[in-house]
Amino acid sequence: MLELRLVQGSLLKKVLEAVKDLVNDANFDCSATGFSLQAMDSSHVALVALLLRSEGFEHYRCDRNISMGMNLGNMAKMLKCAGNDDIITLKADDGSDVVTFMFESPTQDKIADFEMKLMDIDSEHLGIPEAEYHAIVRMPSSEFARICKDLSSIGDTVVISVTKEGVKFSTRGDIGTANIVCRQNTTVDKPEEATVIEMNEPVSLTFALRYFNSFTKATPLSNTVTLSLSSELPVVVEYKIAEMGYIRFYLAPKIED
């Protein structure tokens, strides 16, 4: 028996909007720790890892570890039917091939349940070791989204370089080139507006912009985003989900042929 009640149901709606274009089908894993997902995109270039910790749910019952295969497009369709203020409860019986999403309006005057078929998915889990990163950049998520959008109108790839001067995002395309430098800026009114750069070593890596633009669909989940970079390692783009966990995107770098 599985029963997860999330008072801030909009979080789950936002999570689905953030991942549904990157991954079609995925297994959601439920354990005492929480509700999680790890899935690669079909080209094996990007990976999404989600964790919503059990403590973040108002009610969390998971009698045994369970993995539920879902089509994320269909799940997003169902969650779109929930109001932004609704409380969302996920329910599944042991051995069942369906999951039920229950939506309750805050005043309890409207209660809806949607039942979705589960699917069998052969998931390929990757073991991601803890790594020491050469540079970690924290910046406003809206600023990062703006940069990715702007650069993708010029080129297809972005070079991210971190030096003592700041973090530079560069692209080039048929019409020309673009460089955007963000300097460390911690003297802002609100901490979430700061750009903070922790650098152990300078690093410069090249990535496909279209994946970054896909990751920025998670922007509504968090005011800030963290980029963890090391030479010749995938970048980690992390959006913290307040009080609950995170959504992390891993993207393999491009290498010169």
Binding site: H44, E124, H125, L126, P234, Y250, K254, I255, D257
Partner: peptide, 14 residues
Amino acid sequence: TPMQNDLEEFYAMV
């Protein structure tokens, strides 16, 4: 255009 790496080159399957 630089070559695109595969994530599996970095992380082991578990």
